[in-house]
Design a binder for these strands. Structure first.
Length: 448
RNA sequence: GGAAGGGUGACCGAGUGGUUGAAGGUAGUAGUCUUGAAAACUGCCGUGCCCGCAAGGGUACCGUGGGUUCGAAUCCCACCCCUUCCGCCA
């Protein structure tokens, strides 16, 4: 959620940036409702002030009355209170009830309109109207040349690594059984990512290479709950669109769609100490998505499933350090891809594509030789205080003031890099070489 | 699923209708003392919203939402959450 004061001060800017992100917002109505709301609040405060004055007068007189002095805690009996006084109180109560009745729908509308306003994109976010306007920031690695490159599902099918036919029998479309060495490779990839993220020496090395002034505090590995309460999901601004989420019938719970959802909300309604920041987590979680509106898209292989393993970075930091946290997490992503040896490109996402809570977004896409195109494997989200405002996650700064933390997240590994490995590391005779850094995790196997 | 207990400020924890935004403690912070540190002692120290250039003022908030009352942290109702024990189970 955006700061209302910022919207009051910069209505035209907010309108423009929201439009650039392709979000329908009604800033004029929001400010109008805001004004009505404040006016009603003032009137309510006025009525309450009257009530308080009356109460303190009766409380005071009760405490100094002779009977009260005998027993200080004694209350005045109704007979001791003047009838006019009681009637006045009743009148004031009616006035209050009247104002509150008017305030309720205004508050609801205000909140709904305010929640609808997206985060403001950073200056360097390209303005765009579709994914096509994302800016290629960097291409890394050499694209391998094959006579007849096989797709990942062709390789996996031959090897018996992916069984979607039986999965559809058991669970429906967009599910898969991952089997044998391929399933082990998935685990190896995650384990490798965890080892990098929890190794301070390695993080130091990455920060230095990226030339970033940033803490090298290691990430804490977390296995989070996979279900999330609706209130938390909404506060993260990740509940919508609900059609893409799975709701657990008869409960208040939803299946999380990324460890980001359950890691970012961990410190809901907490005040953290500045000395503890940044707080960094790396969470491994099976993530669930309905993939509504993607019928017929990426139906082959494991590019788009209802359920997949994902290792996710999450960082809570001060506003001053959050941009570097974001850049650091991107540097980590690149290190992970480079150390495996996967050719990729880095995209600076445009205003259309970054998403509602984002101020900035970067994607990494792996090269797929079989299709001669790139496939998104990583995202890094720069969120500023947009999520923490509703999560009420704050920190007490050294000067004693309370501030909202900045929350950022980024993919470490999902299962899509496996697609990249199969395709880029395939051999002419149908085998798959294991990237060197993953060999120890595969029990020493160099090829599968 | 059965039974009981409980949700109060960064944390612990008093408080069962009338100046209670809320005792006490811890932590934090400023100082005294000290060569320095610790200890001890003293002062300060909740958050949201509204008004104000500011100083400051107003108001709300003791899990959430209703209700009773001139007046609610305190009484009533509903809901949510947590803990413990029993049962079941990985």
């Amino acid at each position: 959620m955006l700061d209302i004061q910022f919207i009051r001060d910069n209505p035209d800017l907010v309108k423009q940036k929201s439009k650039e992100k392709s979000f329908e917002v009604n800033i004029d109505r929001l400010l109008e409702v805001d004004k009505i709301r404040r006016d009603l609040m003032n009137r309510k405060d006025e009525a309450l002030r009257k009530k308080n004055e009356r109460q303190s007068s009766i409380s005071h007189s009760a405490s100094v009355s002779p009977s009260a002095s005998l027993s200080p805690s004694a209350s005045p009996s109704p007979e001791e209170i003047d009838a006019n006084f009681i009637n006045e109180g009743r009148d004031n109560k009616k006035v209050l009830a009247d104002i509150e009745a008017k305030l309720k729908p205004i508050e609801d509308e205000y909140r709904k309109l305010l929640k609808a306003v997206p985060n403001m994109p950073t200056e360097d976010t390209p303005v765009g109207a579709s994914e096509a306007d994302n800016k290629v920031d960097l291409e890394w690695g050499e694209k391998p040349k094959f006579k007849a490159p096989k797709s990942h599902w062709e390789i996996a099918e031959t090897k018996g690594w992916i069984d979607k036919e039986r999965a559809s029998k058991v669970s429906g479309s967009r599910f898969a059984y991952l089997k044998g060495d391929f399933a082990l490779l998935s685990n190896s990839l995650m384990r490798y990512g965890i080892d990098v993220l929890t190794d301070e020496a390695k993080l130091k090395q990455i920060a230095k290479k990226a030339n970033l002034e940033v803490s090298t505090k290691p990430f804490t590995f977390v296995l989070p709950p996979l279900m999330i309460r609706e209130e938390m999901f909404d506060a993260m601004d990740r509940l919508e669109p609900r059609e893409d989420r799975y709701h657990i019938e008869g409960t208040d719970l939803w299946l999380q769609g990324s460890a980001e959802h359950v890691l970012g909300s961990m410190h809901f309604d907490e005040v953290l100490a500045e000395a503890d920041l940044p707080i960094r987590y790396v969470g491994l979680a099976t993530s669930f998505r309905q993939e509504a509106g993607t019928y017929g898209k990426d139906t082959e292989g494991i590019a788009r499933l209802h359920q997949f393993e994902k290792l996710e970075m999450e960082s809570l930091s001060t506003p001053e350090t959050s941009l570097n946290e974001h850049l650091f997490m991107i540097a980590i992503q690149e290190y992970l891809m480079q150390s495996i040896g996967l050719p990729y490109r880095k995209l600076l996402k445009c205003t259309y594509d970054i998403g509602k809570p984002n101020a900035r977004g970067v994607d990494i896409e792996v090269w797929l030789p079989s299709q001669e195109k790139y496939l998104e494997t990583h995202t890094a989200d720069y969120m500023t205080d947009y999520q923490s405002r509703r999560l009420k996650t704050r920190f007490k700064s050294a000067d004693g003031s309370l501030q909202l933390v900045h929350i950022n997240d980024a993919t470490a590994f999902a299962q899509r890099p496996l697609i990249g490995i199969l395709e880029n590391f395939q051999t002419e005779d149908g085998e798959v070489d294991i990237p060197e850094v993953l060999v120890p995790y595969m029990g020493g196997k160099t090829q599968i």
